[in-house]
Simulated assay, not measured.
Amino acid sequence: MPAPADIGRRNAIPILHTSGTYYEVGFDVGRTFRGIIEDFLASFTELHQTMLPAYETEAGKAAYDLTLASLQENFPQYVRELQGTADGARVPFHHLLLLHMDSIVPSAAGMVSPPASNGCSSICTNHEGQVLLGHTEDALPETLNHVYLVSAHIKEEEPQGKLGTTSEGFTALCYAGHLPGFCMGYNHHGLVYSINVIMPEKVLAGKTPRHFLCRALLSAKTMEVAQQILRDRGTGSADGFSVNMSFTRQEGDHLFHNAEVGPAEDAEGSPMSILTISPGEHLIHTNKYLRLSIPEKNELCMASSDHRHARAKECCPPETREALLDLLSDTHDTVYPFFREGGDPDFVKTVALGVFDLMERRWTIWMRNPRNTDPLLSLPLLFTWKD
């Protein structure tokens, strides 16, 4: 009998351990998860109805080529990594790169941009004995059951790209066919972070897509380097996002930092605002700018974000692990809840929920609502690789 079309929410996630050059690691990811990547690409409506038709237009192809040229100049190692994934999975490279360009090509072609591919809520809790980063990974419904974990150690003989990287080590949650770094993860330098997508009104061809800046973050050794990556001087971000991060090896008190990043319109670097969450504080960030004054699309991201922030004010402050999990798993708002199961108008689904405990150095992941199930796995945060 053929498998059912709707397999429901699975309580499973595969993980790959791999090492090699950027291309070799990408190839191993593609080869290992070929079936998941093929299934995702076949089912992803926005690729076939919006992105590929936009790519076939003159304006869309010009925006694609301009952005790719910029990436090849600044981040050629990640282009090779993505080429490796495409080769390993035996899928067209431009299909994967279009996913990473998101709404850049459709916008250039004058087409209606895809709906926000992510939601995501992040909570930084910095209280005595409770140093936590919690995150719901929310995405378009086709992404459900199309995620995996990649634990990689990358080594190159020569410095790579504008950052001159030669070595990377990280573990990250990945969407099928996407570069690591766009969801949540950590690197061997002690950086732990999560990403919230933000949808500005304008996105820019020829700038750096946020997927690539988030991928580059996995190489950051210090907060100074992380800021350098996000600012991306000389080019700047093509679109909007925020990063919730902590460098666990820094001396002194535990600190979290929230960086809001905007598109570099008429600028040679990303507009950016950084807020530090000190001991005794916490922060909730969703999919809207809280500090940067950048026009945003008044769509699902904004409406859902407003509802989640309003609901958070009604709940206990997330000062403990229990309160943090209670909020991220909350479904009290039946239209725009924190833990999302799709519906009308909120068609987005939570595909995973993770909590980084920086005191215990563990990353715990749920694939179903924590209110109804135990975590699927708990991984130690291993900050052990050396350059």
Rank of each mutant, 00 (worst) to 15 (best):
L230Q: 01
Y64L: 03
R362C: 07
F247M: 11
L324I: 05
S122V: 02
D6I: 10
F256E: 00
E128W: 08
D253F: 02
H254E: 09
D387T: 10
P345C: 09
V355D: 00
A69K: 13
K162Y: 11
L324T: 11
K297I: 14
C174E: 10
I277Q: 02
F40N: 01
F256M: 08
V335E: 12
K349C: 12
T276P: 02
G110C: 11
H95R: 12
C301H: 10
L217E: 01
G177W: 03
L179T: 03
P115G: 09
P2N: 09
A226P: 04
S219Q: 01
G269I: 05
H127S: 08
H95Y: 12
E73Y: 09
S242T: 08
L213I: 08
S43C: 12
H153E: 11
D28N: 15
Q83F: 02
P4S: 03
I13H: 07
M111H: 08
E322V: 08
V261N: 04
Q77W: 02
R215S: 13
A69Y: 00
L163Y: 15
D346R: 00
S43E: 13
H94N: 14
L163K: 00
A54K: 02
E341Q: 10
R340Y: 03
D28F: 04
N372C: 07
V225H: 12
R80K: 14
P380N: 06
C315K: 15
R249P: 00
R210M: 09
V225N: 01
A54N: 05
I365W: 04
T222M: 03
G354R: 03
P180N: 05
V197Q: 14
P159E: 12
M302V: 15
V147Y: 04
G234N: 02
R362S: 15
P114A: 13
R215H: 11
A59I: 04
T136P: 06
F256I: 02
A312N: 08
V192R: 00
F170M: 09
F40H: 11
S305R: 04
G35N: 14
E56L: 12
Y64D: 02
H94P: 05
I13R: 05
T136C: 08
L96W: 06
L149I: 14
Y336E: 05
P76D: 08
V225D: 06
A69V: 04
C214I: 04
L52V: 13
S167F: 14
R371N: 14
